[in-house]
Amino acid sequence: MADITDQIPERIPINLVVNGARRTLEVMPWTTLLDALRDRLDLTGTKKGCDHGQCGACTVLVEGRRVNSCLTLAVMKDGAEVTTIEGLVKDGALHPLQQAFIDHDAFQCGYCTPGQICSAAGLLAEGRARDADEIRELMSGNLCRCGAYPNIVAAIEQAMSRS
């Protein structure tokens, strides 16, 4: 059992810029970005739905790119800029995607929703989706068990047309 108790690594101090604010925290090597956000920074808007990169609920933007925070080690993102669902609201005003999700009833239980919205924000920034089929394909990394997919596509189309 070489990998148990004899050699507990030191906590590693890291800096993250989360939703525009500089945050310093100490993490273990195995702390994922998802657990760091939820458990250390109390940013529970980012969801854990599978912890294995299979559902997309944990999607956040790192340096503006959408990633699965459950498969990202926090220590590897030292110095990075991270945007979570909480950071999309500006001065109390909803992001156009957030408003579009409400307008189109693009969620029911709401658990996949922050990941869907962050993923959609990444999608808009990438600029690769030109029609509904491409939105569907490029949003397929975000599962929605309530089955809101058609409304999610409609919401993204609304936000796309207004941006």
């Binding site: 939820r38 109390d42 940013l43 529970t44 808007g45 980012t46 969801k47 854990k48 979570t84 669902i85 909480e86 999309l88 609201v89 909803l94 957030q98 408003q99 999700f101 409400i102 307008d103 009833d105 969620f107 709401g110 658990y111 929703t113 922050p114 919205i117």
Partner: peptide, 20 residues
Amino acid sequence: SRIDGRAKVTGAAKYAGEFS
């Protein structure tokens, strides 16, 4: 529209494993 919509799209809605 859902009255809990804003809580859900902003991440403010807290689920069972998120209370501290």
